[in-house]
Design a binder for these strands. Structure first.
Length: 489
RNA sequence: GGCGGCGUAGCCAAGUGGUAAGGCAGUGGUCUGCAAAACCAUUAUUCAGCGGUUCAAAUCCGCUCGCCGCCUCCA
């Protein structure tokens, strides 16, 4: 089995062949630190968390670099508005970002470089480009000369003529070509400044990623990722800078994920339709958000809604409930009894792992992979439900093995890592806290109801039950008495 | 205007040439005094529409309609 990856550059899926046997070098464009992260950022982080976890699960050694843009126009503007420094502002939101990532269960990258800590590398790279005739200075600015790089537009499938025809950008008279972009910007008064051969200034946006990826991963590396909106101009410009300077192929596989939408529109600040990670996880468990995001293939758009998250919570409960039920099965079974499991079901469980891997190997198709897991749950539940009083040893073995496989596979996605019974208990407690009844009160109601039931006063018994149900408590009459549980969503 | 993507059941979503995974909701059932919970079963002769290629198409090709994104900062 081999992993296939969709490459934006070729527009096709192709087998993953790494530059170095068994090793993957991965660079992902991180955030510009000037505001709270929204669920679009969460998707980005989760998608690459999935890719890193899965590649490691498949045996690769992954070096994962994700940068912070901590100097840029937006940061300068926001810092001025808040009457603070760029440094303080960006550091504050980097801290917030780390908090968000921790609560989402995102594995930390191997390296998290910041633009402002790599000025020597950035300046060096710009000098290299000037030397090669791929950049030129105008006043205090330095621009990249796009006409000097033959492949400009190859990643995004455009050419310079087309881009000019539909250009919505105001032409900057200082530039040789309208598509030339800034590598270095001379600073205006009051802005953060670094010394450079072109006078005091600061780096343009794209150059930092070229400089930092080269420093930590080399001239060529395996995978570069980000949101689809970064294809142009950001990643196009990175290629021009890096390949222009080194002459080597910059990146082998370009991986871009789709957007999170709300009511089918891209989340954006201007539309005001974005939700922060904090807002969402205040309402829903991070693991449910993870399941929700992985339930669609990473390249497709994903529409956020409360209903969709509620569905994910229900799905998570289903998975954990199945695992918890199987845990409670007896450890030993009847050696004499014949298996009560059909051949088809046995096969489905036995091939679950390989079917899961096949789906994930196919461009990280987590939606399909999760489908297999849910199918496994369905079969496991069916088998367990039909288990005789003294189940066959073989059948118990299959159930336990199936549950183990489901957990192992799910953990490769960062899911189902909690103890199933503990998870369910915690969910109960969490909801119980929001209800208006206490466990003591519930017990009192149950005692009263049991008396009513003994007197066959069904009307009163049902009234008590309905009352509790209204408050979010389900009663369950069993052979050994009445138990209760919080109604899960 | 240029480039790209999408349209599969009430909703969400896989499936990219061999006869429609999975989840949520609904319905029926097991259980129960009746319920609830849990579990099981079931739910698309059909994949936006119309043509074409093929023994065979949701999958390939063409056209039409609808939605979205990029081309400016953006995950």
């Amino acid at each position: 089995m081999n992993i296939e990856i969709y490459n934006t550059k070729t527009g096709r899926k192709s087998p993953l062949v790494t530059l170095e046997e068994g090793k993957i070098k991965l660079y992902v464009c991180g955030i510009t630190a000037y505001d709270y992260c929204h669920i679009g950022h969460a998707r980005s982080a989760l998608v690459f968390d999935l890719i890193v976890r899965y590649l490691r699960f498949r045996g690769y050694t992954v070096t994962f670099v994700r940068n912070f843009t901590d100097i840029d126009d937006k940061i300068i503007k926001r810092a001025q508005e808040q009457n603070t420094t760029c440094e303080e502002l960006s550091q504050r939101f980097i801290t917030m970002f780390h908090e968000d990532m921790a609560s989402l269960g995102i594995l930390p990258p191997s390296i998290e470089p910041k633009a402002t800590e790599h000025l020597p590398e950035i300046i060096g790279l710009i000098e290299e480009l000037i030397r090669k005739g791929l950049a030129y200075q105008v006043d205090a600015d330095v621009y990249y000369r796009v006409t000097g790089f033959a492949n400009y537009g190859a990643l995004s499938g455009r050419n310079l003529e087309e881009m000019q025809a539909g250009a919505r950008i105001a032409v900057n008279e200082k530039k040789e070509h309208p598509m030339d972009f800034a590598l270095w910007k001379g600073s205006k008064p009051g802005e953060p400044t670094w010394e450079s051969p072109w006078g005091p200034g600061r780096p343009g946006w794209h150059i930092e990623c070229s400089a930092m990826s080269r420093k930590y991963l080399g001239n060529s590396f395996d995978i570069h990722g980000g949101g689809k909106d970064l294809i142009f101009p950001h990643h196009e410009n990175e290629i021009a800078q890096s390949e222009g300077a080194t002459g080597d192929e910059f990146v082998k596989y370009w991986v871009h994920h789709g957007f999170v939408t709300i009511k089918d529109e891209k989340m954006s600040k201007s539309l005001g339709n974005f939700l922060t990670i904090r807002e969402v996880i205040a309402q829903f468990a991070p693991e449910a958000l993870r399941l929700f995001i992985f339930s669609t293939h990473y390249r497709n758009p994903l529409d956020y809604s409360e209903t969709a998250l509620l569905d994910a919570v229900a799905g998570l409960n289903r998975l954990y409930t199945c695992l918890a039920e199987i845990e409670q099965l007896p450890a030993t079974g009847n050696d004499q009894a014949a298996s009560a499991i059909s051949k088809a079901d046995r096969e489905k469980i036995e091939t679950l792992g390989e079917r899961f891997l096949k789906a994930m190997d196919n461009d990280f198709n987590s939606a399909q992979a999760l489908g297999h897991l849910f199918e496994g749950v369905k079969i496991l539940n069916k088998i367990r439900q039909h288990l005789p009083g003294k189940p066959a040893r073989l059948d118990l073995q299959l159930l336990k093995q199936g549950a183990k496989t489901i957990r192992e596979m799910a953990e490769a996605l960062g899911l189902l890592s909690q103890e199933p019974t503990l998870y369910l208990q915690k969910e109960q407690e969490k909801i119980l806290k929001t209800l208006s009844v206490t466990p003591e009160e519930i017990e009192k109601f149950i005692t009263a109801r049991t008396m009513a039931r003994e007197e066959k006063n069904w009307a009163l018994a049902d009234e008590i039950r309905d009352q509790l149900l209204n408050q979010g408590i389900d009663l369950k009459d069993g052979p050994t008495g009445t138990t209760w549980q919080v109604k899960l969503p």
